[in-house]
């Protein structure tokens, strides 16, 4: 490898420079909006949305004038305390933890069965799941609301949780199915030969090696529940709102002076967990995104 590359294989300098410039430009496009919003969330509205100069959002003259310093946490105080964003955050925590754990349990069992079955209905379940995955959630929600009102279960957290679990199933099933396809059959079949039943074989032979697949799938299940607006926005009552519908509700009151900064602070707050997730699980996320693609 230490041999110099032949001239034809070497990249011209201009190409590397051009690529470098393009990558840096993309980095700015991808990251700048977040940096700008985080910075602006510590200003007052008249600075972040300044009619005079965008420079005000950086230096914050009005923030200094009204609050005594160039940075203020008024937006965060207003969101988390005054408008009780903490309640929405708590609801989001409950919903995401429940949805992720339940859909992983369901999906792992189902995915394993699909990967090990050779019957024809397996094929139809997988194709149907793919079609279900393609249907926009809101079309299904329009089917739920009426029965939910009739059964008087509309508005509660468990209702949203079970709906999100169900909507999560097609994706979870496919992910876990293709993961289990990659685990050699010999592993659980030898356990069956040794006298285990299916559940024992699953528990003793498969469970110890399935965690990378479970983590990857779990991350995407978490994101689906965390990012959802369609179900949580339409199925939950005002008292049980999670973070995303709560942020949407700020938009209606945007005319009030300062209320928009509550929304900005809430937006920054809801982004932080996603940042941490990407930071700690980047490898899993990338492998999950490419898993479906590479297989086909």
């Amino acid at each position: 490898m230490s041999m110099p590359l032949p001239a034809v294989l070497r990249r011209p300098a201009w190409l590397t420079t051009l690529a470098m410039g393009f990558v840096i430009l993309w980095l700015i496009i991808a990251a700048f909006p977040f940096a700008w919003t985080v910075w602006g969330s510590f200003k007052v509205q008249t600075d972040f949305f300044s009619r005079d100069s965008w420079w005000n959002a950086i230096t914050g003259p009005m923030t200094t004038r009204t609050t005594g310093g160039p940075f203020t946490t008024d937006g965060y105080y207003g969101a988390w305390v005054t408008t009780e964003f903490w309640r929405a955050a708590l609801n989001t925590l409950i919903v995401t933890v429940c949805v992720t754990s339940i859909s992983l349990s369901f999906g792992t069992l189902g995915g394993y069965a699909l990967a090990r079955s050779t019957h024809r209905y397996r094929f139809w379940i997988l194709v149907a799941a793919l079609f279900f995955r393609a249907m926009p959630e809101v079309t299904l929600v329009s089917g739920y609301l009426f029965p939910f009102f009739a059964l008087n279960i509309w508005g509660h957290l468990p209702t949203a949780i079970i709906v999100l679990v169900a909507l999560n199933q097609p994706f979870t099933l496919w992910m876990m199915y293709s993961f289990f396809q990659g685990i050699p059959r010999d592993l659980d079949e030898s356990a069956l030969v040794d006298g285990c039943n299916r559940f024992q074989a699953f528990r003793l032979a498969i469970m110890p090696v399935m965690w990378p697949g479970v983590i990857t799938t779990g991350l995407f299940s978490f994101l689906l529940a965390y990012n959802d607006f369609t179900v949580t926005g339409l199925v939950l009552s005002k008292d049980n709102q999670t973070m995303v519908p709560k942020i949407a509700s700020y938009l209606g009151t945007i005319q009030d002076e300062g209320a928009i900064m509550f929304a900005v602070a809430a937006v920054v707050s809801i982004t932080i967990p996603i940042f941490l997730l990407v930071m700690f699980f980047q490898r899993y996320l990338v492998s999950g995104l490419t898993a479906g693609a590479v297989k086909g």
Partner: peptide, 10 residues
Amino acid sequence: LVPMLITPLV
């Protein structure tokens, strides 16, 4: 990854 995984509404 961040612009892609961010909550769409946000």
